[in-house]
Simulated scan of single mutants.
Amino acid sequence: MKNVIFYLIEKYDISNGLTTVEQLACNLAADKWRQGKRVLIACEENDQAFKLDEAMWVHDPNAFVPHNLAGEGPNHGAPIELCWPQCRSNTPRDVLINLLPVYADFVSAFHEIIDFVPNSNVLKQLARDRYKIYRNFGFQLTTIILPKRGN
């Protein structure tokens, strides 16, 4: 069964240069890698991919997660790959972490997808559109509401 988990972000902040969604994407990618899965993080653009790449390098050295940008690294890529629409490898992956605002045709190759619903009306509508498409393709859909933190 193909599964999609949507994380509903009720508070959208920027901390250490990353949005709540970007930070969560990095953390979830690390968790999935620790479970033995290969992960693709589909970024909106190369600037976002480079920003996430840099953020993953400066994490606690004891918590290093092997990753690379699309087109870099070993033959079959690191366990976590960051791509963007103009640059994506065809290396098989177990999990897609989708940061793209619209549905991408390659998502059907995945059995496990993580997607996000930020707290913005425009982004919520785009997430609803992706949700409908996933449902039409027969994905099992789950929503996790992340509680607000801080003020």
Rank of each mutant, 00 (worst) to 15 (best):
S89I: 05
C26I: 05
L69I: 07
P61L: 12
F50E: 11
R128P: 09
W57T: 07
N46F: 10
K37R: 15
P101W: 14
P79S: 01
I41W: 01
V107M: 12
N119H: 13
F6N: 10
N3I: 00
N16F: 00
G36Y: 09
N98S: 10
E22C: 09
P66W: 09
W57F: 08
V102L: 11
N121G: 02
K148G: 15
D94A: 15
A42P: 04
E44K: 10
N3Q: 04
P74G: 07
I97P: 02
W33P: 05
A49T: 02
L100T: 00
N27T: 07
N90A: 07
L28S: 02
R38S: 08
E44P: 01
A104L: 06
N121P: 06
I113D: 03
A63Y: 00
H111V: 03
N46V: 03
N121K: 11
K32A: 13
C26G: 07
W33A: 10
V102F: 12
T142L: 14
C26Y: 03
G73D: 03
L100V: 00
A55Q: 05
S89Y: 08
A70G: 05
V58H: 05
H76G: 09
N75A: 03
V4Q: 10
P66H: 09
A104S: 10
S108P: 09
L69H: 04
C43K: 13
P74K: 08
A55T: 04
